[in-house]
Simulated assay, not measured.
Amino acid sequence: MNALQEIRQRNEEYMKNFSENRMVQLFKDGRTPEGLKEEIIQYGQVWSDTFQHVVTMRAACENDPAFRPAAEEHLAEEIGHNQLLQKLHSGPPKWDPVVAASSSWFVHQMQVLSSPERSALAHLVLEGAGTVALQAGSLSFPESEYFALHDEADEGHMEMGYAQLAAAPHVPAAQILEILEKGWKMVFELCNRIAQCAETAYSLRADDWQVGVGIKV
Protein backbone atom coordinates (compact mmCIF):
# COMPACT_ATOMS: atom_id res chain seq x y z
CA MET A 1 0.00 0.00 0.00
CA ASN A 2 1.47 3.36 -1.01
CA ALA A 3 1.08 6.62 0.93
CA LEU A 4 -1.95 7.88 -1.02
CA GLN A 5 -3.76 4.57 -0.62
CA GLU A 6 -3.11 4.65 3.12
CA ILE A 7 -4.41 8.22 3.35
CA ARG A 8 -7.60 7.30 1.48
CA GLN A 9 -8.13 4.16 3.56
CA ARG A 10 -7.63 6.01 6.82
CA ASN A 11 -9.98 8.80 5.76
CA GLU A 12 -12.68 6.33 4.78
CA GLU A 13 -12.36 4.74 8.22
CA TYR A 14 -12.82 8.14 9.85
CA MET A 15 -15.90 8.77 7.71
CA LYS A 16 -17.40 5.46 8.76
CA ASN A 17 -16.80 6.27 12.41
CA PHE A 18 -18.30 9.73 11.93
CA SER A 19 -21.56 8.15 10.78
CA GLU A 20 -22.06 7.21 14.45
CA ASN A 21 -21.83 10.85 15.54
CA ARG A 22 -24.81 11.95 17.62
CA MET A 23 -25.78 14.75 15.26
CA VAL A 24 -25.72 12.42 12.28
CA GLN A 25 -27.80 9.85 14.14
CA LEU A 26 -30.42 12.45 15.05
CA PHE A 27 -30.72 13.46 11.41
CA LYS A 28 -31.10 9.82 10.35
CA ASP A 29 -33.69 8.98 13.00
CA GLY A 30 -37.18 9.50 11.62
CA ARG A 31 -38.47 9.95 15.18
CA THR A 32 -36.42 13.09 15.85
CA PRO A 33 -38.89 15.92 16.61
CA GLU A 34 -39.01 18.87 14.25
CA GLY A 35 -38.21 21.23 17.11
CA LEU A 36 -35.02 19.33 17.92
CA LYS A 37 -33.94 19.38 14.28
CA GLU A 38 -34.45 23.15 14.24
CA GLU A 39 -32.27 23.47 17.35
CA ILE A 40 -29.52 21.49 15.59
CA ILE A 41 -29.67 23.86 12.64
CA GLN A 42 -29.57 26.96 14.86
CA TYR A 43 -26.49 25.75 16.75
CA GLY A 44 -24.97 24.45 13.52
CA GLN A 45 -25.39 27.84 11.87
CA VAL A 46 -22.34 29.11 13.78
CA TRP A 47 -20.21 26.39 12.18
CA SER A 48 -21.73 27.01 8.75
CA ASP A 49 -20.91 30.72 9.02
CA THR A 50 -17.37 29.94 10.21
CA PHE A 51 -16.81 27.49 7.36
CA GLN A 52 -17.07 30.47 5.03
CA HIS A 53 -14.04 31.91 6.85
CA VAL A 54 -12.24 28.55 6.59
CA VAL A 55 -12.41 28.39 2.80
CA THR A 56 -11.70 32.13 2.50
CA MET A 57 -8.63 31.88 4.72
CA ARG A 58 -7.37 28.86 2.81
CA ALA A 59 -7.60 30.67 -0.51
CA ALA A 60 -5.97 33.79 0.94
CA CYS A 61 -3.04 31.85 2.42
CA GLU A 62 -2.47 29.46 -0.49
CA ASN A 63 0.51 30.51 -2.59
CA ASP A 64 1.54 27.14 -4.00
CA PRO A 65 0.56 27.07 -7.71
CA ALA A 66 -0.16 23.34 -7.44
CA PHE A 67 -2.84 23.96 -4.80
CA ARG A 68 -4.09 27.51 -5.31
CA PRO A 69 -6.53 26.85 -8.22
CA ALA A 70 -8.43 24.23 -6.22
CA ALA A 71 -8.52 26.50 -3.17
CA GLU A 72 -10.00 29.31 -5.24
CA GLU A 73 -12.48 26.97 -6.94
CA HIS A 74 -13.56 25.58 -3.58
CA LEU A 75 -14.13 29.10 -2.25
CA ALA A 76 -16.14 30.15 -5.31
CA GLU A 77 -18.40 27.10 -5.01
CA GLU A 78 -19.00 27.55 -1.27
CA ILE A 79 -19.70 31.28 -1.09
CA GLY A 80 -23.12 32.06 0.36
CA HIS A 81 -24.10 28.50 1.21
CA ASN A 82 -24.49 29.43 4.89
CA GLN A 83 -27.33 31.73 3.85
CA LEU A 84 -29.21 28.71 2.47
CA LEU A 85 -28.98 27.05 5.89
CA GLN A 86 -30.35 30.21 7.50
CA LYS A 87 -33.61 29.62 5.63
CA LEU A 88 -34.21 26.43 7.66
CA HIS A 89 -34.70 28.18 10.99
CA SER A 90 -36.66 31.20 12.11
CA GLY A 91 -34.42 32.50 14.90
CA PRO A 92 -30.84 33.78 15.10
CA PRO A 93 -27.87 31.40 15.30
CA LYS A 94 -27.39 29.99 18.79
CA TRP A 95 -23.90 30.56 20.15
CA ASP A 96 -21.99 28.06 22.27
CA PRO A 97 -18.36 28.59 23.37
CA VAL A 98 -17.26 25.05 22.51
CA VAL A 99 -18.86 25.17 19.06
CA ALA A 100 -17.36 28.60 18.41
CA ALA A 101 -13.88 27.62 19.61
CA SER A 102 -13.87 24.33 17.71
CA SER A 103 -15.00 26.10 14.55
CA SER A 104 -12.30 28.75 14.90
CA TRP A 105 -9.64 26.05 15.19
CA PHE A 106 -10.19 25.17 11.53
CA VAL A 107 -9.75 28.81 10.47
CA HIS A 108 -6.44 28.99 12.33
CA GLN A 109 -5.17 25.78 10.74
CA MET A 110 -5.54 27.33 7.31
CA GLN A 111 -3.02 29.97 8.40
CA VAL A 112 -0.37 27.65 9.79
CA LEU A 113 -0.48 24.36 7.84
CA SER A 114 1.43 23.45 4.70
CA SER A 115 -0.39 23.36 1.37
CA PRO A 116 -0.88 19.55 1.34
CA GLU A 117 -2.08 19.63 4.95
CA ARG A 118 -4.54 22.46 4.21
CA SER A 119 -5.87 20.50 1.26
CA ALA A 120 -6.31 17.34 3.35
CA LEU A 121 -8.07 19.20 6.14
CA ALA A 122 -10.40 21.10 3.82
CA HIS A 123 -11.20 18.36 1.32
CA LEU A 124 -10.74 15.05 3.12
CA VAL A 125 -11.85 15.95 6.64
CA LEU A 126 -14.36 18.76 6.25
CA GLU A 127 -15.85 17.66 2.95
CA GLY A 128 -15.73 14.03 4.09
CA ALA A 129 -17.64 14.94 7.24
CA GLY A 130 -19.96 17.06 5.14
CA THR A 131 -20.72 14.14 2.85
CA VAL A 132 -21.78 12.01 5.81
CA ALA A 133 -23.64 14.70 7.78
CA LEU A 134 -25.42 16.27 4.85
CA GLN A 135 -26.58 12.97 3.38
CA ALA A 136 -28.13 12.31 6.78
CA GLY A 137 -29.52 15.85 6.91
CA SER A 138 -31.23 15.41 3.56
CA LEU A 139 -33.35 12.71 5.20
CA SER A 140 -34.58 15.23 7.77
CA PHE A 141 -34.92 18.10 5.29
CA PRO A 142 -35.76 16.46 1.93
CA GLU A 143 -36.97 19.73 0.39
CA SER A 144 -33.98 21.79 1.52
CA GLU A 145 -31.87 23.46 -1.17
CA TYR A 146 -28.94 23.54 1.27
CA PHE A 147 -28.84 19.80 1.85
CA ALA A 148 -29.61 18.90 -1.77
CA LEU A 149 -26.81 21.14 -3.03
CA HIS A 150 -24.21 19.74 -0.66
CA ASP A 151 -25.31 16.17 -1.10
CA GLU A 152 -24.26 16.53 -4.74
CA ALA A 153 -21.16 18.70 -4.25
CA ASP A 154 -19.29 17.48 -1.18
CA GLU A 155 -18.15 14.12 -2.52
CA GLY A 156 -16.75 15.90 -5.58
CA HIS A 157 -14.89 18.33 -3.32
CA MET A 158 -13.45 15.40 -1.38
CA GLU A 159 -12.18 13.75 -4.57
CA MET A 160 -10.61 17.08 -5.51
CA GLY A 161 -8.43 16.72 -2.43
CA TYR A 162 -7.29 13.22 -3.34
CA ALA A 163 -6.47 14.41 -6.85
CA GLN A 164 -4.41 17.30 -5.51
CA LEU A 165 -2.36 15.02 -3.29
CA ALA A 166 -1.87 12.55 -6.14
CA ALA A 167 -0.56 15.31 -8.39
CA ALA A 168 1.74 16.87 -5.81
CA PRO A 169 5.47 16.22 -6.32
CA HIS A 170 5.85 15.24 -2.68
CA VAL A 171 3.20 14.24 -0.14
CA PRO A 172 4.31 14.37 3.50
CA ALA A 173 2.34 11.27 4.43
CA ALA A 174 3.08 11.36 8.16
CA GLN A 175 1.94 14.97 8.43
CA ILE A 176 -1.17 14.28 6.36
CA LEU A 177 -2.14 11.34 8.55
CA GLU A 178 -1.56 13.47 11.64
CA ILE A 179 -3.80 16.31 10.45
CA LEU A 180 -6.45 13.78 9.44
CA GLU A 181 -6.46 12.41 12.97
CA LYS A 182 -6.61 15.85 14.58
CA GLY A 183 -9.17 17.20 12.13
CA TRP A 184 -11.54 14.27 12.47
CA LYS A 185 -11.32 14.43 16.27
CA MET A 186 -12.19 18.11 16.15
CA VAL A 187 -15.09 17.78 13.74
CA PHE A 188 -16.47 14.77 15.66
CA GLU A 189 -16.46 16.72 18.92
CA LEU A 190 -17.83 19.82 17.19
CA CYS A 191 -20.84 17.97 15.82
CA ASN A 192 -21.39 16.04 19.04
CA ARG A 193 -21.44 19.36 20.87
CA ILE A 194 -23.97 20.79 18.43
CA ALA A 195 -26.21 17.79 19.11
CA GLN A 196 -25.70 18.07 22.86
CA CYS A 197 -26.60 21.77 22.88
CA ALA A 198 -29.62 21.16 20.68
CA GLU A 199 -30.95 18.35 22.85
CA THR A 200 -30.51 20.43 26.01
CA ALA A 201 -32.24 23.44 24.46
CA TYR A 202 -35.08 21.30 23.14
CA SER A 203 -35.54 19.66 26.53
CA LEU A 204 -35.77 23.07 28.20
CA ARG A 205 -38.21 24.23 25.54
CA ALA A 206 -40.40 21.19 26.24
CA ASP A 207 -40.25 21.85 30.00
CA ASP A 208 -41.29 25.47 29.46
CA TRP A 209 -44.22 24.35 27.34
CA GLN A 210 -45.34 21.89 30.00
CA VAL A 211 -45.20 24.57 32.67
CA GLY A 212 -47.23 26.87 30.44
CA VAL A 213 -50.06 24.38 30.05
CA GLY A 214 -49.98 23.36 33.69
CA ILE A 215 -48.57 19.86 33.21
CA LYS A 216 -45.39 20.47 35.15
CA VAL A 217 -44.76 22.78 38.09
Rank of each mutant, 00 (worst) to 15 (best):
residue 158 M to T: 01
residue 180 L to A: 11
residue 175 Q to T: 06
residue 153 A to Y: 03
residue 90 S to R: 15
residue 37 K to D: 03
residue 136 A to K: 02
residue 121 L to W: 04
residue 115 S to L: 07
residue 168 A to S: 14
residue 98 V to C: 08
residue 55 V to D: 00
residue 36 L to H: 06
residue 148 A to D: 03
residue 90 S to K: 15
residue 32 T to I: 08
residue 197 C to W: 01
residue 32 T to N: 05
residue 112 V to I: 14
residue 194 I to T: 06
residue 71 A to R: 08
residue 75 L to R: 13
residue 77 E to I: 08
residue 36 L to E: 06
residue 132 V to F: 04
residue 151 D to C: 05
residue 129 A to L: 05
residue 30 G to L: 10
residue 15 M to I: 06
residue 7 I to T: 04
residue 83 Q to A: 14
residue 114 S to A: 07
residue 115 S to G: 07
residue 101 A to F: 13
residue 206 A to D: 07
residue 173 A to Y: 00
residue 5 Q to C: 11
residue 74 H to G: 05
residue 84 L to N: 06
residue 176 I to H: 01
residue 45 Q to W: 02
residue 99 V to I: 15
residue 59 A to D: 10
residue 217 V to F: 14
residue 217 V to W: 14
residue 152 E to F: 04
residue 178 E to W: 11
residue 53 H to C: 11
residue 147 F to Q: 00
residue 147 F to W: 04
residue 136 A to I: 03
residue 184 W to F: 15
residue 77 E to K: 10
residue 21 N to H: 01
residue 108 H to E: 13
residue 189 E to P: 00
residue 34 E to A: 12
residue 95 W to L: 15
residue 12 E to S: 11
residue 156 G to T: 02
residue 8 R to A: 09
residue 211 V to Y: 10
residue 100 A to K: 15
residue 131 T to I: 07
residue 105 W to F: 12
residue 108 H to I: 09
residue 167 A to F: 11
residue 6 E to F: 09
residue 106 F to A: 13
residue 200 T to W: 11
residue 41 I to T: 11
residue 170 H to C: 07
residue 37 K to T: 03
residue 151 D to N: 06
residue 198 A to E: 01
residue 39 E to V: 03
residue 100 A to R: 15
residue 211 V to W: 09
residue 32 T to P: 02
residue 12 E to V: 12
residue 177 L to Y: 08
residue 8 R to W: 08
residue 179 I to Y: 06
residue 208 D to H: 09
residue 175 Q to I: 04
residue 179 I to G: 03
residue 205 R to C: 09
residue 216 K to G: 07
residue 79 I to P: 01
